[in-house]
Simulated assay, not measured.
Amino acid sequence: MTTNTPPSGTTPEIESLSKDQCWEMLREQVIGRLAVVDDDHPDIFPINYAVDDGSLVFRTAAGTKLYGSTNNTPVAFEIDGYNPSTEQAWSVVLRGTVLAIRAGAALAEAESLTLEPWQGGLKNHLMRILPLNLSGRRFKVTRPDIWHTPLSDARRASFE
């Protein structure tokens, strides 16, 4: 196994994103990963979501995602990406708790969001992630030729 090491003397700078920047990035995306704990082990699920009044709303069917997100344990949600024009990667992580949206004005409001499931099937459970912590970071990526990255790596397009 080959271990690649960055050039000596280089320390990548990491920019911490403000909460406003994090919410902006969350509003610009439509899919992310929800991490829940089920049967004492973590599971991660892709979900599509909508930002609503300082929280995230998603739909789900009955199952592990529903149980794992509502069993009184914290969850984590992440989006990330790469901007080839700036050669920067970024990541936003929201940690929080999940509440089922069941009735009243909250349900009507959640139903009005543009939140159609990507996967077929009955997704009749609307859930809200209430943030306890929101953080993000952005950094310039290392040139792909330094690390011998595969041809399919998204960074290559920026440098070729």
Score class of each variant (00 low, 15 high):
15 E>G: 02
55 S>Y: 01
9 G>T: 03
57 V>D: 05
82 Y>T: 06
56 L>V: 09
23 W>T: 03
56 L>F: 11
119 Q>N: 02
126 L>V: 05
59 R>Q: 08
101 I>Y: 06
125 H>F: 15
126 L>P: 12
80 D>R: 07
30 V>L: 00
113 L>C: 01
129 I>R: 04
35 A>Q: 07
76 A>Y: 07
50 A>D: 02
21 Q>D: 08
35 A>W: 00
111 E>R: 15
62 A>V: 07
13 E>L: 13
89 A>F: 02
138 R>C: 04
130 L>F: 05
124 N>S: 12
9 G>W: 14
13 E>I: 13
8 S>V: 13
61 A>R: 04
123 K>M: 15
55 S>T: 04
21 Q>S: 14
2 T>K: 12
108 A>D: 10
74 P>I: 14
24 E>S: 08
100 A>M: 02
51 V>M: 09
156 R>I: 14
151 L>F: 05
47 I>L: 06
22 C>S: 03
128 R>S: 08
126 L>C: 06
71 N>M: 06
124 N>D: 13
25 M>H: 07
69 S>A: 14
52 D>I: 00
131 P>E: 03
85 S>N: 11
57 V>T: 07
93 V>P: 05
130 L>Y: 09
75 V>G: 12
145 D>K: 15
65 K>S: 12
77 F>R: 15
42 P>V: 03
16 S>G: 10
59 R>S: 14
68 G>P: 05
109 E>P: 05
86 T>M: 09
114 T>W: 12
28 E>Y: 05
87 E>I: 04
44 I>D: 00
19 K>H: 00
10 T>S: 11
93 V>K: 09
12 P>H: 04
109 E>F: 00
44 I>S: 07
58 F>A: 10
88 Q>K: 13
129 I>A: 06
93 V>W: 05
20 D>P: 00
119 Q>T: 15
31 I>V: 15
85 S>L: 10
101 I>D: 03
65 K>Q: 06
10 T>F: 08
62 A>F: 13
24 E>H: 06
18 S>A: 14
119 Q>F: 07
50 A>V: 05
156 R>M: 08
73 T>G: 14
38 D>P: 01
19 K>N: 07
87 E>W: 03
116 E>N: 05
21 Q>M: 03
21 Q>W: 08
98 V>P: 06
159 F>I: 11
127 M>I: 15
30 V>D: 06
119 Q>K: 09
45 F>I: 12
60 T>G: 12
116 E>V: 10
21 Q>T: 13
54 G>T: 03
71 N>P: 09
45 F>A: 08
136 G>R: 11
157 A>M: 14
63 G>R: 10
84 P>S: 07
129 I>G: 03
42 P>G: 04
79 I>M: 13
12 P>Q: 07
22 C>N: 02
137 R>V: 02
108 A>V: 10
104 G>E: 05
138 R>Q: 10
94 L>W: 08
8 S>Y: 09
47 I>M: 14
2 T>W: 01
64 T>W: 04
158 S>A: 15
56 L>E: 11
57 V>E: 12
131 P>G: 11
116 E>M: 11
77 F>T: 09
58 F>Y: 15
57 V>C: 11
158 S>D: 12
59 R>L: 11
40 D>H: 02
90 W>P: 04
124 N>R: 13
88 Q>F: 09
115 L>A: 06
36 V>S: 08
94 L>D: 11
73 T>M: 13
143 R>E: 08
52 D>K: 02
15 E>C: 01
